[in-house]
Computed example of a mutant assay.
Amino acid sequence: MSDGIARRGLLLVLSSPSGGGKTSIGRALRVTDPNLGLSVSLTTRPPREGETDGKDYHFVDEAAFLAAVREGRLIEHAEVFGARYGTPRAPVEAALAEGRDLLFDIDWQGTRQLREALPEDVVSVFILPPSMAELERRLRARRLDDDATVTRRMSRAAAEIAHWDEYGYVIVNRDFDLSVGAVRSILAAERLKRSRQTGLAHFVAGLLA
Score class of each variant (00 low, 15 high):
residue 133 A to L: 13
residue 182 A to S: 07
residue 160 E to Y: 01
residue 144 L to R: 13
residue 111 T to L: 13
residue 192 L to K: 13
residue 155 S to E: 13
residue 109 Q to Y: 04
residue 33 D to N: 10
residue 83 A to I: 06
residue 130 P to N: 09
residue 65 F to D: 04
residue 53 D to S: 04
residue 85 Y to F: 02
residue 74 L to K: 00
residue 54 G to V: 15
residue 13 V to G: 12
residue 39 S to M: 11
residue 6 A to R: 07
residue 193 K to P: 01
residue 72 G to P: 07
residue 76 E to D: 13
residue 120 E to I: 09
residue 51 E to T: 05
residue 6 A to M: 05
residue 170 V to Q: 14
residue 206 G to R: 11
residue 115 R to A: 14
residue 22 K to D: 04
residue 2 S to R: 10
residue 80 V to T: 13
residue 42 L to R: 09
residue 156 R to H: 08
residue 59 F to E: 14
residue 191 R to Y: 02
residue 104 F to G: 14
residue 125 V to A: 06
residue 15 S to K: 06
residue 147 D to Q: 10
residue 193 K to A: 09
residue 207 L to K: 02
residue 61 D to V: 00
residue 104 F to Y: 03
residue 108 W to G: 14
residue 4 G to R: 00
residue 132 M to L: 07
residue 115 R to N: 11
residue 4 G to E: 02
residue 192 L to W: 06
residue 97 A to L: 03
residue 172 V to W: 04
residue 195 S to R: 10
residue 104 F to V: 12
residue 74 L to H: 00
residue 130 P to C: 08
residue 129 P to V: 07
residue 1 M to D: 13
residue 121 D to Q: 01
residue 187 L to W: 02
residue 91 P to G: 06
residue 142 R to D: 08
residue 69 V to E: 12
residue 177 D to R: 09
residue 145 D to I: 02
residue 160 E to G: 03
residue 61 D to I: 08
residue 102 L to T: 02
residue 130 P to I: 02
residue 88 P to G: 14
residue 168 G to R: 00
residue 125 V to S: 08
residue 139 L to V: 01
residue 190 E to V: 07
residue 190 E to F: 09
residue 26 G to P: 05
residue 31 V to P: 08
residue 32 T to W: 15
residue 40 V to P: 00
residue 43 T to H: 07
residue 20 G to K: 03
residue 192 L to C: 10
residue 96 L to D: 06
residue 9 G to Q: 03
residue 104 F to I: 03
residue 200 L to N: 11
residue 97 A to V: 08
residue 118 L to W: 01
residue 112 R to Y: 11
residue 51 E to H: 00
residue 88 P to R: 03
residue 92 V to H: 01
residue 134 E to Y: 15
residue 164 W to H: 14
residue 79 E to F: 06
residue 176 F to G: 05
residue 51 E to F: 02
residue 106 I to Q: 07
residue 209 A to K: 13
residue 64 A to T: 14
residue 58 H to M: 12
residue 151 T to N: 12
residue 151 T to H: 15
residue 165 D to W: 12
residue 119 P to H: 00
residue 65 F to H: 13
residue 192 L to T: 07
residue 9 G to V: 05
residue 158 A to W: 14
residue 206 G to K: 05
residue 111 T to H: 15
residue 51 E to S: 04
residue 47 P to I: 12
residue 26 G to M: 01
residue 86 G to V: 00
residue 97 A to Q: 05
residue 143 R to I: 11
residue 123 V to L: 03
residue 159 A to N: 15
residue 163 H to Q: 12
residue 197 Q to L: 08
residue 207 L to R: 11
residue 52 T to V: 13
residue 21 G to Q: 05
residue 39 S to V: 09
residue 151 T to S: 15
residue 74 L to E: 03
